[in-house]
Design a binder for these strands. Sequence first.
DNA 1: GTTCCGCATGAATCGATAG
DNA 2: ACTATCGATTCATGCGGAA
Lengths: 312, 312
Amino acid sequence: MSAKNNLLRRNERGMKIPHFDEIVLGDCTEILKDLPADCVDLVFTSPPYADQRQKTYGGVHPNDYVEWFLPKADQFFRVLKPTGTFILNIKEKVVDGERHTYVMELILEMRKRGWLWTEEFIWHKKNSYPGKWPNRFRDNWERLLQFNKQKQFRMFQEEVMVPVGDWSKTRLSNLSETDKTRDESRVGSGFGKNVSNWVGRNLVYPTNVLHLATESSNQNHSATFPRALPNWFIRLFTQRGDLVLDPFVGSGTTALAAIELGRHYTGIDISKQYVELARERISVAQIRLPHVAEHREKYKTIRKNGAIKGKR
Amino acid sequence: MSAKNNLLRRNERGMKIPHFDEIVLGDCTEILKDLPADCVDLVFTSPPYADQRQKTYGGVHPNDYVEWFLPKADQFFRVLKPTGTFILNIKEKVVDGERHTYVMELILEMRKRGWLWTEEFIWHKKNSYPGKWPNRFRDNWERLLQFNKQKQFRMFQEEVMVPVGDWSKTRLSNLSETDKTRDESRVGSGFGKNVSNWVGRNLVYPTNVLHLATESSNQNHSATFPRALPNWFIRLFTQRGDLVLDPFVGSGTTALAAIELGRHYTGIDISKQYVELARERISVAQIRLPHVAEHREKYKTIRKNGAIKGKR
DNA sequence: GTTCCGCATGAATCGATAG
DNA sequence: ACTATCGATTCATGCGGAA
């Protein structure tokens, strides 16, 4: 079943699923009520972090964050398939010299409401925001909390395997081919799946620590996470044709990652500006998609020749 | 004031401080009652993690972990100087497919009892335990929770600056880290001093993500964290002559780090075997200290020559 | 004395088996 | 049903032997 056939995707009871491959304007708590239960394969989102400045857009005071978030989490729970996964990218702010506790309280409350806190991944941000403070170093990591509805969930570990010695190339420094593959895997945007075709061997499973640089090139919006982040989790927890939901879709990075991986998406944001930006980026990306596919073929040929030449 | 003069160190009221530069056998909750209040500059410890096998040595069931730990945390709070810091190395176990919540609950409870949760460092364990499971990747990180008694605490950021240069930028930082650790294992001293010897390099402040491998080759005991870990925090939060406390000292790694950095130590452990092992390792280290200093000079010469050769 | 390679070794986790 | 034990899985690292 191709993605095209699924544009009129219906759920188990034959009802059309609203907001399929759309970026929707509104509060996700309300919008998600249009979705039937158990229809989403992966919820991946990076909500606006708690903010002391209550007047700022999206700003929720840390003390109100859990209360603000829980009704939304309830909706995520409802629309998520039993075998699906919820990945929450979040980090606690420093408030009055302390790390705030809203993330921990959120986890505890979500567990009371039926969520399983399966795992916590660490995103090691290799290029963090510069700065210096007398009693604190730069914050170089964020949490990626994994929640599930049940102990049995779908996970496709082979899709995210990485070349050996990815982050510590103390050995095997001789192999130029390995180096090339390693560089390509670091880009991690859509091509990661091809890595298994190229090498086939020397692949190992990753760990729960992800090393990715933030994307500094995008100037249209702040707080952008790299596309490689949703890309990685989409490959890990979904298959082609599955549905990915981002209820705080922002500039659309999650939707773009879903598109380039052949997954369906539903993106929601309460900001009209962000919705327009996300739609714009998606339309541009979809126009480019054939070009990308063509380019990928070219690149594969180049790679093969390069690999043959490179043999020593 | 040298360490020798401080062997009869007395507190502000002229009372001798018990257990100064000693490894003490017993339950730290009781032992610490011998210490006066506000005398410790840094508490660094890695307690036995929650263990389901309650009958095993050191095993505390995850559900009982917070209750078990809190009385000890109260003592740490009492003996710690107002400007001091408490670093807790801990990680939650997987129980029934979920990450257990005892760490979060512990943080919340400690805050209720006066602790400030200032920061959370991530220890990226580059060599984690192997294994493969259908629903989980290998666990590659642990928490290093920083607690303080007040917002103003002592921190010497310059002491842990790391060199960044053209060579260390292109070459992976992992590799240089390995070199440093290797230096340490060969020479027997902290790599911090070696770093300061690397003149002419640009020094930058580190972040809150630490990349260190566990020490797996040590056969005398299990569960060893690398000496570089306490070493780093001791340099960051104390000065020469200060007092470092490890209430779960185990094989004595924290005490060894304190000694090599010219800090005083108090180590406590409830296991007679561990106490004996720690005392043995410390006595060996102290005997070797002069020899090490001599060897270090030799090694520096070797290094220099190697560096000249190695320049590309 | 240097580099290279083989090998043992982990703060683990799951699922099956046994009591 | 519930708990305790055991085997299988897997890879970065340090150490020691060899060239």
